[in-house]
């Protein structure tokens, strides 16, 4: 019994530290309540910054995960209540000085979620 509890605890702890932004984004694509989406995006922003710190402190080399999270950080930076859709697109294009179609992942994954809260 003790070993089962131990294993369960390990799973819980592992899950607590797991950061799967693409899963969060997929989940938010199915969420219709803008208030919930905004709140979840704010949480994603916090978790993502914590994850970047974690990558910095780990003895590993995960450049694609780091690049993904750094892009996500820039994509979430302007998110706020009542944000304009065109405004968001302009800000992100300006932030990367690139055409919308050229922007890195997860820009295009995240865009349907942003559209749920922008006007």
């Amino acid at each position: 019994m003790k070993s089962i509890i131990f294993l369960f605890s390990i799973i819980l702890i592992t899950n607590a530290y797991a950061f799967e932004p693409d899963l969060v984004i997929e989940k938010l694509k199915r969420e219709d309540n803008p208030a919930v989406v905004l709140s979840q995006l704010k949480q994603l922003q916090k978790d993502n910054i914590a994850y970047i710190k974690k990558l910095h402190s780990e003895r590993s080399y995960e450049p694609d995960l780091m690049a993904y999270s750094l892009t996500l950080k820039a994509l979430l930076r302007p998110v706020k209540k009542d944000i304009g859709c065109q405004y968001y697109v302009d800000v992100i294009k300006d932030s990367f000085k690139a055409e919308w179609s050229e922007l890195d992942n997860p820009t295009h994954d995240l865009w349907p979620v942003i559209q749920k809260i922008c006007k």
């Binding site: 080399y61 694609d64 690049a67």
Partner: peptide, 27 residues
């Protein structure tokens, strides 16, 4: 663009300090 430069700066130092730890084998 600021997002682009912020990303490049972080990646540059990440490569400098982590590149030797292992080849990219993660997700």
């Amino acid at each position: 663009g600021m997002g682009s430069v912020e990303k490049m700066m972080n990646m540059f130092f990440y490569d400098l300090f982590h590149g030797g730890m292992s080849e990219a084998q993660g997700k």
